[in-house]
């Protein structure tokens, strides 16, 4: 019999996880404000010596192939773009969650970080290649955090994967998300949303985490972004980069076409771009001595 989970239990799990650093929290707040400028990002990173060192390491990693070393933060940040700065900051302080072995999903080590990074890249590509009026950097950040709830509920799901897959195959349950709810009384989208509230993440990101599998239920003002990450998540799984047993066991909401204009050629071009960018970024993070 699997142990049931309620909100109190999830909150207790969350309380055992380190909080986001002050600089990561500020970066998330600043980058979701449409009126911010690059200098405000530089100012935040400068207050955090560890983050500064990591940013310089990443930009000078061989994966970026720069001929001349970049030694100033201003140049590093304008070269990498704010999405990668936020990515490095979040990846560092939430590494305990991103690096968690998702035993409940029978995932390989490092799957959550790789899936989240690939979803981040894919969500951004969806926005840029469809020409949607969404901040592409915000799509990247939201993509990076969308599945963080899996790290909170994975342990409770131990030993359930085969049964869940059999139920989905027999159409006894709709998808992996509803199966999580049926098995342990909580799904990873709701768990992630609780973390978003505890970490006081911006409302847009909290909304993406909560509704990335059910985008039609998101608040209208956030819905196009939620759809972009919904597609980014599916594209990451199609590229063979899921988080284990649940990969591709979710439903595509084809109503995305109300918000994003995507034909099959554009999708093919997105898949290609995602693969290239993912290989580069994964390498640069690894070379920079990242634990992911």
């Amino acid at each position: 019999m699997t142990e049931k989970v309620d909100r109190e239990k999830i909150r207790r799990v969350i309380s055992s996880v380190p909080l986001l650093s002050a600089s990561a929290t500020q970066l998330l707040q600043t980058t979701t404000d449409p009126d911010h400028d690059l200098q405000s990002i530089v100012r935040i990173v400068k207050t955090d010596a560890t983050l500064t060192a990591r940013v310089l390491k990443v930009v000078n990693s061989a994966a970026f192939g720069l001929i001349n070393e970049i030694t100033t933060l201003d140049r590093a940040i304008s070269y990498l773009g704010e999405r990668l700065i936020v990515g490095i900051a979040i990846g560092d302080c939430a590494s305990q969650l991103f690096n968690k072995d998702l035993q409940g999903y029978e995932a390989e080590h490092g799957s959550l970080w790789r899936h989240d990074l690939r979803t981040a890249i894919a969500s951004r590509e969806v926005v840029t290649q469809t020409g949607a009026d969404i901040n592409p950097d915000l799509a990247f950040t939201a993509g990076l955090l969308h599945d963080i709830g899996k790290a909170l509920i994975s342990d409770y799901l131990s030993g359930t994967a085969a049964e869940i897959i059999a139920k989905i195959s027999a159409e006894q349950t709709s998808d992996y998300l509803s199966a999580e709810e049926e098995m342990i009384g909580f799904d990873h989208a709701r768990a992630g949303h609780e973390l978003a509230l505890a970490w006081k993440l911006p409302a847009t990101i909290a909304e993406v985490i909560r509704f990335h599998h059910t985008p039609a239920a998101a608040q209208p003002e956030y819905r196009s972004l939620v759809y972009a990450v919904h597609l980014g998540d599916n594209i990451a799984m199609m590229g063979g980069c899921g988080t284990g047993a649940d990969s591709m066991h979710y439903r595509l909401d084809t109503e995305y076409s109300e918000y994003l204009h995507l034909d099959s050629n554009t999708l093919a071009s997105i898949l290609l771009a995602v693969n290239e960018e993912f290989n580069k970024l994964e390498r640069s993070f690894a070379e920079a001595g990242d634990t992911h």
Partner: peptide, 14 residues
């Protein structure tokens, strides 16, 4: 050549 569930024509890359 797998496909996501409830796929449409566009997403039937597999």
């Amino acid at each position: 050549g797998a496909n996501v569930m409830d796929t449409n024509d566009t997403f039937q890359i597999g």
